[in-house]
């Protein structure tokens, strides 16, 4: 860790390419963003000194031994594997024009998940992995599909599964004022109180992780995105199949505080996802997981 930090500091000082990226052409992290990430992660590390960085990905289950045992028991026989298999099949099935999803992306499928959300310079906005998949369909003459659950969530879950152990590295390119503004907007969305109950994401997931609201143990915001889409018992009980994307989950948390959920794959949530994911940079993708 110490060496990484030194590298980052040096990179910031001398404008070198950061030690975390292997590609010399890859954009460098904006230093103010890196400072935010360090402060954010240190806050949680100090609060929960017995946890390693990757432990935070277990959310509420990292907060007590009992909860962790429950989680481990369920993950021994994951209830969602059939759907992930379906996701793999969908992902690998060529479009009618013969091309595949992979043709829309550079690099290996295995690491796709780690760089999203990504700044799209051509469009001048943040692009999520889910949106990139939809765009890929449209580019190849296929219909759009929904971004909350169903087929897209299964494909996305497949990509999260094969990325297990790969390290999250979301970049807000240095010197790109528009990208930084989008990131700042996402940060604002995260810290602003909203809704009739007047609560911010940070009120629950930064100020009170480990505490309970009714019977629900609050997860720390650090590591909240390492395992999405998640398969939730709650979502499986209702219509649908149990899988939901991160933005579907945002909608649920908004409703809890009686705030109107934002539209999925529009600027407000995309920028929030940009900020929220970048805060977990350096953590490993933990694969698709179960949540209550």
């Amino acid at each position: 860790m110490k060496t990484t930090k030194t590298t980052i500091v040096l990179a910031a000082l001398f404008g070198l390419v950061g030690g975390m990226t292997t590609n010399a052409l890859a954009a460098q992290q904006d230093p103010s963003v890196q400072a935010d990430i360090n402060a954010f992660q240190n806050y949680f590390k100090n609060k929960f000194q017995h946890l390693s960085l990757n432990d935070f990905s277990k959310g509420p289950y990292a907060m007590s031994e009992d909860k962790r045992l429950q989680f481990d028991a369920i993950m021994e026989f994951p209830p969602f594997e059939d759907l992930v298999d379906k996701g793999e099949e969908l992902w690998k099935t060529p479009f009618r024009n013969g091309k595949t999803y992979s043709s829309c992306f550079s690099g290996s499928d295995k690491t796709l998940r780690t760089a999203y959300p990504k700044w799209n310079s051509a469009k001048g906005k943040v692009e999520t992995l889910e949106q990139a998949i939809v765009n890929c369909r449209v580019k190849n003459g296929e219909k759009k599909i929904g971004t909350g659950k169903g087929k897209l969530a299964w494909m996305s879950a497949y990509l999260t599964g094969i990325a297990t152990g790969e390290v999250i590295n979301v970049i807000v390119p240095k010197g790109n004022a528009k990208a930084l503004a989008a990131y700042e907007q996402g940060k604002k969305e995260f810290y602003a109180k909203r809704g009739q109950l007047n609560l911010s994401c940070a009120n629950c997931h930064v100020d009170n992780p480990g505490q309970r609201i009714r019977g629900n143990t609050l997860s720390p915001a650090l590591g909240q995105i390492t395992h999405f889409p998640v398969w939730r018992g709650k979502w499986a009980k209702k219509k649908g199949d149990g899988f939901g994307t991160i933005q579907r989950r945002y909608g649920g948390c908004n409703k809890q505080v009686r705030a109107k959920p934002r539209k999925r794959q529009k600027a407000a949530y995309n920028n929030l996802e940009y900020f929220h994911t970048a805060m977990s940079n350096g953590m490993e993708i933990s694969g698709t997981e179960y949540r209550e």
Partner: peptide, 28 residues
């Protein structure tokens, strides 16, 4: 998927117990 699994029998009962009501606050 990488790991193939047999679904445990006690699983569904266990899952149900873990799924107790999750509405924290309910809507407007």
């Amino acid at each position: 998927m990488i790991i193939k699994s047999i679904k445990g029998k006690g699983f569904s009962a266990f899952l149900l117990s873990a799924m107790v009501s999750l509405a924290i606050f309910s809507a407007p």
